[in-house]
């Protein structure tokens, strides 16, 4: 198509919904404000982490935003004296289970793309004040595909910040899940960032429906 670009994406995205009999304005009863965090026993978290004496699970929390977002936070031990908590967060974006929900979805709790240069700079400055920060040139890979990360250092400590979006709903994600966003922030005294990333590299998601791993796909 040259020149005229019209009636584009929105049509194609929604054409398959085949909604019938539901016309006019539907009142938006979804609130976008997240509900308060609730505690969650580590055993009930939808993620399994390798045993790590340096970064044990201190506590788990969960909260929902509207009807389709559930977030989990795993706070990990922090052997340094730096400010800020070590943690792994998961945001699970499920597909609405009603037609009304399909028409009216609250805005995403995380942006896509996850970071721009600008927002990443702001985030890293907030997470690691006063440290030297470098965004890794190449991505790394865990069980769920490639992820990006940054490393922050000062004289005594090293920190890593990794982020990942699982959005391959054709192959990896179950039908009901639209996307999973992961974020991992850990500070330690080891100078080698790979050691700090180990938990993120080896974690396994245990959501109610199975998320397939990259290796599963290769075997298929």
């Amino acid at each position: 198509m040259f020149g005229r670009s019209r009636l584009s994406r929105a049509f194609i995205l929604t054409a398959s919904l085949a909604v019938t009999g539901c016309a006019g304005w539907v009142e938006n009863n979804l609130t976008q404000a997240p509900n308060p965090w609730r505690r969650l026993a580590p055993a009930d978290l939808p993620v399994t982490l390798p045993n790590s004496p340096q970064f044990p699970i201190v506590a788990g929390r969960t909260r929902t935003t509207g009807a389709i977002y559930t977030s989990y936070m795993v706070v990990l031990g922090n052997p340094t004296t730096l400010p800020g908590e070590n943690r792994l967060t998961l945001d699970v974006h499920t597909l609405p289970d009603s037609l009304v929900g399909a028409l009216i979805q609250p805005p995403r709790v995380f942006p896509v793309p996850l970071y721009s240069t600008q927002t990443l700079t702001v985030t890293l400055a907030r997470e690691f004040p006063g440290m030297t920060v470098k965004v890794a040139d190449g991505a790394r890979r865990n069980r769920y595909g490639d992820y990006d990360y940054a490393v922050a250092q000062d004289a005594a400590n090293t920190c890593v910040f990794a982020w990942q979006l699982i959005s391959d709903h054709d192959r990896m994600l179950p039908r009901r899940i639209e996307a999973v966003r992961l974020e991992y922030r850990v500070c330690g005294s080891d100078r080698n960032p790979r050691v700090l990333l180990r938990s993120f590299d080896e974690m396994a998601l245990t959501l109610p429906e199975t998320v397939l791993e990259i290796d599963d796909l290769k075997r298929l």
């Binding site: 929105a10 049509f11 919904l17 909604v19 304005w25 979804l30 028409l103 009216i104 979805q105 805005p107």
Partner: peptide, 19 residues
Amino acid sequence: VEQAGLTVLLPGRDGFRKG
């Protein structure tokens, strides 16, 4: 549909509401 006191035309039946 009605929105913010205005009576407006959705460009198509499906896919033009975001939040």
